[in-house]
Design a protein around this nucleic acid. Structure first.
Lengths: 155, 155
DNA sequence: TATTGTTATACTCTATAACTATA
DNA sequence: TATAGTTATAGAGTATAACAATA
């Protein structure tokens, strides 16, 4: 049963949209006990791994627009998980730092997300999981290349 | 450069979100000449492949909520790409049918989406592309199973 | 002039409750 | 009472323009 969409299943994007929707639901449930969402978790991890990062750099790393990042950083700062140090060399910019509480929450959330990953990729071998991630990165590279060439030809 | 998010790259969901965002942009650009979006294209294809389908069945097949499907079907009907036949056996329901114009537009849009698929999966062998789709379907099954068990234990 | 962070805003996607007409 | 389609609405997520402070 449920083969109404057979013709769409030839497209990676179609299955990806469906898989992504379920992953989003599952990871948000996994992060709910920590009052984190996918984007706040991602920001927390990247800040912890890259002390002194500026907001613009973080937005670029996570591929989100700067205005949308402001509320994410606000939320992490309000909960004392990170702090906004002033960059002495450039007083416009913040140097983002994780706090001890932030590091501890990240560790617990990271374990929960790893559980989530194991749940969602159950039935795949580790090789298959790595091949999946590699294929997704290839698509990302292809998409970025198209994006760039579009920008260049428009410019 | 740009390895700020190395720690997040171990998660399929993280790379998937990034790949999906670029796919969405690219497929919408590919469908723009036909004034279709991903969801209207998908609905058109499934209706064409399953004449007489009811809206509730279509919503279920595409995993979108019934209220959100209404505007999608409205749009396709307004453009005379599909029509809403009344089901004589159940006067509450519509039997959705593709029109000749709808079939023709679907054919042209399908070719454009196949081009898009080739562009986005460039650099992958056909085996790798098929493995990607299989892995995504496995994740979808895992996510559905979790979803269901959640519902059961809550019920 | 250009850039950092910010505000305001708008548009899409998604989810739920409640209605109507039929069953 | 349950279901098909609909309406209204609210919440995310995402994108752009424009501003103040600083470079």
């Amino acid at each position: 049963m449920e083969k109404f969409d057979d013709n769409l299943r030839q497209f990676a994007g179609y299955s990806m949209k469906r898989a992504m929707s379920l992953i989003q639901t599952d990871v948000n449930a996994a992060l709910a006990p920590f009052e984190l969402r996918m984007v706040t978790f991602s920001a927390l991890v990247v800040i912890a791994d890259n002390p002194g990062l500026k907001q613009a750099q973080l937005a670029d790393a996570l591929s989100i627009e700067r205005p949308n990042l402001v509320l994410v950083v606000d939320e992490l700062e309000r909960r004392d998980l990170i702090l906004r140090d002033r960059d002495p060399a450039d007083r416009r910019a913040y140097a983002l730092q994780v706090t001890l509480a932030g590091r501890r929450l990240r560790d617990r959330a990271m374990a929960a997300v790893q559980d989530h990953e194991r749940r969602m990729t159950a039935g795949l071998t580790e090789d298959q999981r790595q091949a999946l991630i590699a294929a997704l990165r290839q698509i990302e590279e292809n998409g970025k290349a198209d994006d760039d060439s579009g920008k260049v030809s428009r410019a």
